[in-house]
Write a protein that binds this DNA or RNA. Structure first.
Lengths: 192, 192
DNA sequence: TGTTTCCAATACAGAACGTAGCGGTTATGT
DNA sequence: ACATAACCGCTACGTTCTGTATTGGAAACA
């Protein structure tokens, strides 16, 4: 709330510490944006709300993120989606990725981001984000030598129920079901 | 645009036809609401937009649908989701339901409604709608004597990829994949 | 020292919000 | 035929948010 007020800057100056550059402002605003997103959804990511929540001037908000979509894009950039560790075993790696995805969906930041991207009608941004979310699964299957068509089917079969749970039904992710699906998929791919 | 203007009402009066009661107003507004929803998403369902789109007075809009969520709810009520015909054969009925759902998602009214429900954070309304969407599949499986746990799994496996395609990836529904999934599910349930 | 970068503060016109009240018309019922 | 209720259009009002522009101050850099 007070990070960027005149009082704060004067205080910082007197203490000899430099008032932060652009970096600090973006950090303050984006953390508040994430909290707003989690608490109230994408509709809360407006210049006014960000201003009252952070104390950062409204003009500054407009300068850096002219549209709410820009805020979403910035949020995506600062919260990367790293893959899980790889062992080389197809089934094991898929199970690991499923666990990782389930955790992300359960803790709600990723789920909230998905809901926001659906709401914001930011089509290409949404496609990129979903692509990043599915990429680890594609990578694992590609490394196992699975062809593109089978790969898409397998990824969809494994991930789709999890996404539907998080996005439409707001219920805890169906972990065990996902793992069962992984076993089915792995078995089918092994037989082929 | 002119349905409800004074001119129109005077015209209707002179022609001897009664200016319509509540029924006509709701019809005019809700059809415009559907068009707005399809064209610009849930964010367009505001009192102002509905007013300028229909000519119906802004106060009337507020009277009937105080919040945009009420407009969505009304839209759901006037566009029921009937099931497909039943033959009694499990696989056949599932295929029929998949075709029906694919058509609905391809023609975008249902997909747009889902996106709107995600955007509007109208949780219970969304759950009801998704439930109605999945109900035919549950019915078919119940009629075939499938237990609740297997039923949920089967429905999720069949429907989730379709919903993800329509909701997140904005791509034509994966019909053939869905039918393949139905065959897999039917085979698995038959063996058990 | 001068320049550039970053930000706060203010002002402004425009749009949408939500509420309220008035008046006129149609439908209903005694 | 007459009173009542139900609907709806219209206007007005204060508030909030929007998007843009401008000014001035403080820090960083050369």
């Amino acid at each position: 709330m007070f990070f960027r007020h005149k009082m704060y800057r004067q205080l910082m100056t007197r203490l000899g510490r430099p008032a932060g550059p652009a970096q600090e402002t973006t950090a303050v605003v984006l953390t508040a944006a994430l909290q707003l997103l989690l608490a109230e959804g994408a509709a809360a990511l407006t210049p006014q709300r960000l201003h009252t929540a952070t104390g950062v001037s409204r003009s500054t908000i407009y300068r850096h993120w002219p549209t709410p979509g820009d805020v979403l894009a910035a949020l995506i950039d600062v919260a990367p989606l790293g893959p899980a560790e790889r062992t080389g075993d197809l089934a094991h790696d898929l199970h690991a990725e499923v666990d990782l995805l389930c955790n992300r969906l359960r803790d709600r930041p990723v789920a909230a981001m998905l809901q926001a991207l659906v709401a914001a009608a930011a089509t290409d941004l949404r496609h990129r984000y979903v692509g990043d979310l599915l990429a680890p699964f594609h990578d694992v299957l590609t490394a196992a030598g699975i062809g593109p068509a089978d790969r898409d089917d397998a990824v969809a079969a494994i991930v789709s129920p999890l996404l539907v749970d998080a996005l439409l039904l707001d219920r805890p992710t169906a972990r065990t079901r996902a793992h069962r699906t992984v076993d089915d998929v792995a078995a089918r791919l092994a037989h082929a």
